[in-house]
């Protein structure tokens, strides 16, 4: 499969995530769109690792490309930790202002 297809698919997913972050006001949905962007990057990393593997296998290196897939694994690990802390913060925010609307989070302005 040409690598271009994967690049454009990942770009499209990433841009949908960005549009979601910019257009929604619900903090949880914004957080989900950030997850979507992370996943777009993961997909591209895996595709590039397979591309690198294909090129390096011709030169005799049969384990080239494992690094990229392990990076994806570590990204997933960090994302899981990030989600637990982020959702705890959102729950605390809901407890304080009884809403998940990010427009209420402008206390620094006043």
């Amino acid at each position: 499969m040409p690598i271009n297809y994967y690049i454009f698919l990942s770009i499209a997913l990433f841009c949908i995530g960005i549009a979601g972050v910019l257009t929604r006001r619900n903090a949880i949905i914004i957080f989900m769109c950030v997850e979507l962007m992370l996943n777009a990057v993961n997909l591209l990393l895996v595709a590039f690792s397979k591309m690198h593997h294909l090129n390096a296998a011709a030169a005799g290196n049969s384990t080239a490309g494992t690094d990229g897939q392990l990076f994806v694994f570590f990204i997933m690990v960090v994302a899981a930790a990030e989600v637990s802390v982020g959702l705890a913060i959102i729950v605390m925010m809901y407890r304080n202002i009884h809403s998940v609307d990010v427009n209420f989070l402008n206390r620094l302005k006043h």
Binding site: M1, P2, Y6, K50, M51, H53, A57, T66, Q69, L70
Partner: peptide, 16 residues
């Protein structure tokens, strides 16, 4: 360039 589909063993749990 193209990404290798269906084949290649780097994604298997043994190598990773």
């Amino acid at each position: 360039q193209s990404a290798e589909v269906n084949t290649g063993s780097i994604g298997l749990i043994k190598n990773l």
